[in-house]
Amino acid sequence: MLTGSEDVNLLLTKSPVDMVNTPLTKITKVLTDARSIRIKGRSFLAVVLSPDLPLDEWLVRLDDLAARSAGFFLGRPVVLDVTDLDIDRAQLTDLIAGLVQRNVSIMGIEGARPSMLSPGMPPILKGGRPVADFEQPSTEPSAAQPAPQPKSASAETRAPMQSIVIHEPVRSGQSVIFPEGDVTVVGSVASGAEIIAGGSVHIYGALRGRVMAGSVGNASARIFCRKLEAELLAIDGIYQMAEDMAPSLRGQPVQLWLEGDVMMAETIS
């Protein structure tokens, strides 16, 4: 899915927007309540295990690894990657059971065919982005390494804000995800496209899609656009759908920001 693009820019990924999987559709139902629900994105670093066949031999090697470093998988989020692994549902069930027995808790499965899954299995994960190879523990059994910090987005660890500039229109179905900072688009954002930024979002064109600014808990983020025709706007988890927006703002150059839990908007000239 991300072939060829990884080495260009890890941070800018364009992937299909799966409308069904987003929790956002539920938002409209709570509008009667004055308090809004905050939904935020977070990314964590997970260990990905890619077993190979035959599985029993692989499990032996895993045991070997675990013997060298006790508790390597303890408390670590582990994703099971079964892409290109030719196994059926029964084998997958056995594999998961085998891993649970070894105290490896699987938080999600990647690359599984729907036919391989049964209820009660960990959920399917999609759209993973590769990071530098995970270091295996060294051969000395005592060299217990500290667990890698999950890539947390808390304010303490936030690096100086970065920004990216996109010089072409963001098309329907594309999403630009940049938790590290501001996103500037020199062009339009189409209906069915989405921008998710850790900082502010600037659109020098028509905004017809969805924009989520300050997605990592940044209430001071703002959204600017030349022409507001957005489907959905969010700053720091506070959402507004198209129908909640004042009709007078439609088609206008607008900036939006948060005051407390209320999204404010005004036209800019």
Partner: peptide, 10 residues
């Protein structure tokens, strides 16, 4: 038009 936009992206 929206579908065309998607195709242009592809």
């Amino acid at each position: 038009v929206r579908d065309s936009d998607r195709i242009i992206g592809m």
